[in-house]
């Protein structure tokens, strides 16, 4: 396998794992983790794309920005999760599925 093929497999694996996690987990912390995995897939793709188009620096600087933005989202997500645990006493998504119809 060439490098780019390995990267491609990696991206797809991360995306797949992230989305799969989001589809099946009922735990809020795991949801945040799955989101992280998903975004990491995008991140890897970005770096690889920079590499492939001969713009290595661009790709890497973008990746840095993504990491920052992504961390902010993760922090907010975890804060909401903590609040959910405090308020509802559970991290189960079942307690967060009352808005229907």
């Amino acid at each position: 396998m060439t490098t780019s093929e390995i990267v491609l497999v990696g991206v797809l694996a991360l995306l797949g794992a992230g989305l799969y996690g989001l589809l099946i987990t009922r735990n809020l912390i795991k949801v945040v983790i799955a989101l992280q995995i998903l975004v990491k897939g995008g991140l890897l793709a970005l770096v690889a794309a920079g590499e492939a188009s001969g713009q290595t620096n661009l790709g890497q600087s973008l990746a840095m920005t993504v990491i920052v933005a992504d961390t902010v989202v993760a922090v907010v997500g975890l804060a909401l999760a903590i609040q959910a645990r405090r308020l509802l006493g559970t991290l189960d998504l079942k307690a967060l599925s009352n808005l229907r119809g």
């Binding site: 995008g42 793709a45 794309a49 188009s53």
Partner: peptide, 10 residues
């Protein structure tokens, strides 16, 4: 983000 990567690569 993934879409951006595709565009950048292309």
């Amino acid at each position: 983000l993934l879409g951006i990567a595709l565009v950048l690569g292309q």
